[in-house]
């Protein structure tokens, strides 16, 4: 099963849940891979030590327009859906804005003068780490200055040697990076906190997942903080609460030391095993309803 751990709001505990869940699943003897899809700021490996066994670049092709062959016919610019080409026939000026290019190839199809070729641009890297437990962590990391993380996220998610059971640690927000991470999941765990900000962003995440027709459940982190409005809303919508993580100083301390509470405290190991059980049960129910 592919499980995405996501949240609308940043800093609610996605990586906290995914790293501890990863640990607890392994302790049960189930092979599992954790993929850090937050390519703009990956941090899963802060919590593990392992040997990097593989690394490969994620490459995009961008057009190169050759002035000597270009007739400034403007057709490539008209074909480009992303405003990545500026063409001013009067000024004899043609320019590619590489950051905006989506590698769709439309400009190459448009050009009848063979004035466009392609070059490769490195967008980021996918690294694979082998942990002492035998499990692997895969990390997508965007190169600095690259506009869109999507190709790197997809590159990490398609790591060919991942286990049948994989956890995707999603980027925050509900825009394209989140959608790319949720799209391939069998089940999505939304981590939130009982605050007005948490609720606001949870509503947006739920709307997005409903549009994508995904099965999902909610983990409330820092429970005991804030107010009751999130509980009332979840009940009204009939959205299951999979687990509530208490607002516990020990969790914060252990996390800040780059360690896993499920490893340090057996009670929490049981807690995360239990969460995995609930995810499996709920995902199973959802699929049998379809």
């Amino acid at each position: 099963m592919k499980i995405t751990i996501a949240s609308g709001k940043g800093g609610t505990g996605k990586t906290f849940v995914s790293t501890n869940l990863f640990f607890a699943i392994q302790q049960e003897g189930t092979p599992v891979t954790l993929i850090d899809c937050d390519a703009e700021e990956p941090n899963v490996m802060e919590f593990f030590s392992g040997i990097r066994t593989e690394q490969y670049p994620i490459i995009q092709k961008v057009p190169v327009i050759h002035d000597d062959l270009c007739t400034y016919c403007d057709k490539c610019r008209e074909y480009c859906n992303y405003n990545a080409i500026i063409c001013l026939p009067q000024a004899k000026h043609i320019q590619v804005l590489e950051d905006l290019c989506h590698d769709c190839g439309a400009c190459l199809a448009a050009c009848q003068y063979n004035a466009i070729t392609e070059k490769e641009k490195t967008l980021g890297h996918v690294s694979v780490y082998s942990l002492s437990s035998g499990a692997s962590v895969v990390e997508g990391r965007l190169s600095i200055g690259v506009y869109s993380p999507i190709p790197v996220i997809k590159g990490a998610m398609h790591y060919p040697h991942q286990e049948e059971n994989t956890l995707f640690d999603a980027p925050p927000g509900i825009s394209c990076p989140f959608i790319a991470t949720a799209d391939k999941a069998d089940y999505v765990v939304l981590v939130t906190e009982p605050t007005p900000f948490g609720l606001n962003d949870l509503k947006l995440s739920v709307q997005t997942l409903d549009t994508l027709q995904k099965s999902y459940g909610v983990v409330i982190n820092r429970s005991g903080l804030g107010d009751n409005s999130i509980y009332e809303w979840l009940e009204e919508k009939g959205i299951p609460i999979l687990a509530e993580i208490p607002f516990d100083k020990e969790i914060a301390r252990v996390y800040s030391e780059g360690r896993l509470i499920a490893e340090v405290n057996p009670g929490y190991r049981y807690f995360f095993s239990n969460l995995y059980q609930k995810i499996q049960n709920h995902a199973g129910n959802c699929s049998s309803q379809r």
Binding site: R77, Y82, N83, I86, Q90, A91, L100
Partner: peptide, 20 residues
């Protein structure tokens, strides 16, 4: 280009520059 998803700036350059 007011509500373009991306590249509003470059598309607007195209517009004003083509006006000379």
């Amino acid at each position: 280009n007011k509500d373009s998803l991306e590249g509003a700036g470059p598309a607007s350059i195209q517009l004003v520059a083509s006006k000379g």
